[in-house]
């Protein structure tokens, strides 16, 4: 155990190019995923929080439940859509980073939307009467609330980023873990574990953990700074 840990530490200390490329791809996929999922998830979550429509309770429950969506299931479904014998097969997207972003977006949108709904709904309770007296349209309310909750919503986006970076089931299936093309940190860890190279997979795990920690530290300080500056 201790030996494995020490060996892992020495591997981390001299990262080779291949590992850097893998980390970089993880980063790019997560960035594209979270951008897309934020663009869809924030308005969607806020809309569900503010609008009143029949079946709103059901939609809320559905969104919350989908936070726990198994990534392997999403992987298989997206795989079947993108497969050459599936409906979007002509696009030839299977086994590409684009396919990975698509699958992960399906995973992350419900997560961001559900958290956004909760945060915005709490704010809505405070502002509802005021907005109604000002005759705000639904769209104005959504925009105003999203803006007002922006610091809290960072948590939703961070949760999405974390899920995207750490998820392995979906990217393995739709990406194929192709070396130099669709291999990301999590699939590389899975492969090295399969090869019985535990120190290397642990080293990659440490890199993954460090990246996620750095990201969260950055977001935390950004939030503190912004709150001091803009109240």
């Amino acid at each position: 155990m201790l030996n494995t840990l020490l060996e892992a530490l020495s591997l981390v200390s001299h990262l080779d190019n291949q590992v850097v490329a893998i980390v970089w791809l993880s980063f790019k996929v997560a960035l594209a995923t979270v951008t897309l999922a934020t663009l869809i998830g924030l308005p969607l979550g806020a809309l569900v929080a503010v609008a009143s429509f029949p079946g709103r309770g059901a939609v809320t429950v559905f969104l919350n439940a989908m936070m726990g969506l198994p990534s392997v299931v999403v992987g298989v479904i997206v795989y079947l859509f993108l497969s050459r014998s599936g409906p979007f097969g002509d696009m030839g997207l299977l086994y590409s980073p684009t396919a990975m972003v698509m699958a992960q977006t399906v995973l992350v949108v419900p997560l961001i939307a559900a958290l956004t709904r909760q945060i915005v709904e709490d704010a809505w309770r405070v502002y509802a009467t005021e907005f109604r007296s000002m005759h705000f349209t639904l769209r104005h309310s959504v925009v105003a609330l999203l803006y007002d909750c922006r610091y809290s919503l960072v948590v939703a986006v961070l949760a999405g980023t974390g899920r995207s970076l750490s998820e392995v089931g979906a990217v393995m299936i739709v990406g194929g873990n192709i070396e130099g093309y669709t291999r990301v940190m999590t699939t590389a860890i899975a492969l090295e574990t399969a090869k019985g190279d535990l120190p290397l997979s642990l080293a990659l795990g440490m890199v993954l953990l460090t990246v996620v920690l750095l990201l969260n530290t950055g977001a935390y300080h950004l939030r503190l700074w912004a709150m001091r500056k803009y109240g």
Partner: peptide, 23 residues
């Protein structure tokens, strides 16, 4: 909102083309 969807579409197209061009 229309603007947002336009940007989203462009973003998606770029991503798709990147995937196809590489293949």
């Amino acid at each position: 909102m229309a603007n947002f969807f336009r940007q989203l579409t462009i973003f998606l197209c770029v991503m798709l083309m990147a995937g196809i061009a590489r293949a």
